[in-house]
Amino acid sequence: MILPRSFASATCRLRLLLALLAAGTLSSAQAQMADSVLTGPAPMATPRPPELPLPQASPHAVVLQTIGLTDVTVDYHTPAVRGRAVWGQLVPYGQVWRAGANENTIVSFSDPVSLNGQAIPAGKYSFYILPKSDQDWELILNRVINHWGAENYDAKADQVRLPVVPETGPMHENLVYWFSEVKPSSGRLNLSWEKRTVSVLIEADVHAKALAGIQKVLAAHPENWQLLAQAADYLVQNNIQAELALQYINESLRLKEAYTNTWIKARLLASKQDYGTAIVYGRRALKLGERDDPNFKTSQPNMRITLTEWQSKAY
């Protein structure tokens, strides 16, 4: 059946199409036409109003610090004092504060860490502060990271609350997060605004992660004497895993004897207070360096001083 081109009204067209659909007499093209009539055009999306590219009153900021092998990131917005009374007024006592402006302040840890001795899993957390008085504050990590500030904050989602005492310091017009006392396995995260600074100690188990990485690389390159020597040297420098360090350095020496890995074994033996054997390997390292390495002269003086120290302890 051929559909007529025009009908008296939309109601007539709808009735006819329904009848044809029920009878199953529509061709494919006619069925598409029926679908178009029945469903009508898709609603138009409401256009988003344009926005002017204006600077924010509290600009966005990100600070990242690597502690050992762990990345610690703070993503926040920076409110300014602008002549206002901050603590106890702009930031009321007894209320959870977003520790910044606009969206939540987010603190991220790429690996498990401890904060002031409290274990924290790797991940992202909203960072809040609860100032109770001038000297009695709590730092809060909360597992919900998509709130706007403290709206809908729920203490049940807190990962940890840390009691802290803020310190009085120089004036900071803009809130700022910064790191200090950064060492291979620890560092301090500080927040400063107006004349208050609060600090938290972050500690990371850098040796556990380093050892896991060492084992992975050595499993892929078991015949690389230099990698084995580097692994042993790391363990000796940090005075950990002495037996594993001995295993690595012996395998390195089996593959190739050089003054570098020979000296590492001498240092490892000295760390175990086996000074007599350490001296034997130390003297061997000196001979290998003088014979094989044109750049050895830069290392030689310190090695001789160390050998003299071992001799005073051995005899």
Rank of each mutant, 00 (worst) to 15 (best):
R5S: 14
T11N: 01
R13A: 13
L17F: 10
A19C: 04
L21P: 00
P41I: 11
M44R: 06
P50S: 01
L54Y: 09
L54G: 05
V62S: 05
L64S: 13
D71N: 12
T78D: 04
R82F: 12
G83V: 12
Q89K: 11
Q89G: 00
D111N: 09
Q118S: 01
P121E: 12
Y125R: 05
Q135T: 15
Q135Y: 11
D136G: 01
E138R: 09
N146Q: 10
D154M: 05
H172A: 15
V176G: 10
S180D: 15
S180K: 10
K183M: 12
P184Q: 03
P184H: 02
S186W: 06
L189F: 02
V198T: 08
S199F: 03
V200I: 15
L201C: 03
K209L: 12
A210R: 10
A212S: 13
A220C: 00
W225C: 07
L227Y: 07
Q230P: 03
A232L: 12
I240K: 11
L244Y: 00
A245Q: 05
E251L: 12
E251K: 14
S252E: 12
T262E: 07
W263V: 04
W263D: 08
R267H: 08
K272I: 03
K272N: 04
K272Q: 15
G282P: 04
L286C: 02
L288V: 07
G289A: 04
N295K: 10
S299V: 07
P301Y: 11
R304F: 01
T308S: 15
Q311P: 00
A314Y: 11
